[in-house]
């Protein structure tokens, strides 16, 4: 009985705070993306001829995890298969956050474009049944200053 109550409380906390967290994160992401929209990011290898010499590697990484409610809900959903919206939003948040951090680093060194952007994904959960189910996203590229 006690175990059941604990799980119910954790589910409720996860549902409420997880939602608030996610909405705030998306709000922050929209603001940051707007703010950094003057920095060009492309995943082209070839650099244009008109740019100032030298470049620098910039990167941004983030580890995010799903909340308890989504974890349980996903477990149930997986019995039927289909689209897992909670994990879609998780990787979307991670990817956008990693790119935002990379762009911030580029701006800090005075660059105005990032070329050859690469995204690297790592799953942090070791075993399927383990408590921790986070993902890491790394974005990196070469920051340059266009003329």
């Amino acid at each position: 009985m006690g175990g059941f109550i604990t799980v119910a409380i954790l589910l409720a906390i996860g549902l409420v705070f997880g939602q608030i967290n996610e909405q705030n994160h998306f709000k922050r992401l929209r603001r940051d993306e707007e703010d950094l929209s003057d920095i060009l990011t492309v995943n082209l290898k070839d650099l244009p001829l008109e740019m100032q010499p030298n470049g620098m590697l910039v990167s941004g990484n983030v580890v995010v995890a799903v909340d308890y409610f989504k974890k349980i809900a996903t477990g149930i959903k997986q019995l039927f298969g289909g689209r897992l919206r909670s994990y879609e939003s998780l990787v979307e948040r991670a990817r956008r956050e990693a790119i935002v951090r990379m762009k911030k680093e580029a701006r800090d060194i005075g660059a105005d474009a990032v070329y050859n952007v690469r995204l690297e994904f790592t799953s942090m959960g070791q075993q399927p049944r383990q408590a921790f189910g986070g993902v890491e996203l790394l974005a990196y590229g070469t920051a340059v200053k266009l003329k």
């Binding site: 954790l10 906390i13 996860g14 705070f17 997880g18 967290n21 996610e22 994160h25 983030v62 580890v63 995010v64 995890a65 799903v66 909340d67 308890y68 989504k70 974890k71 956050e97 408590a131 921790f132 189910g133 986070g134």
Partner: peptide, 9 residues
Amino acid sequence: LKNIVGGEL
């Protein structure tokens, strides 16, 4: 603990 509410670790 953070895993209960989700978000960045």
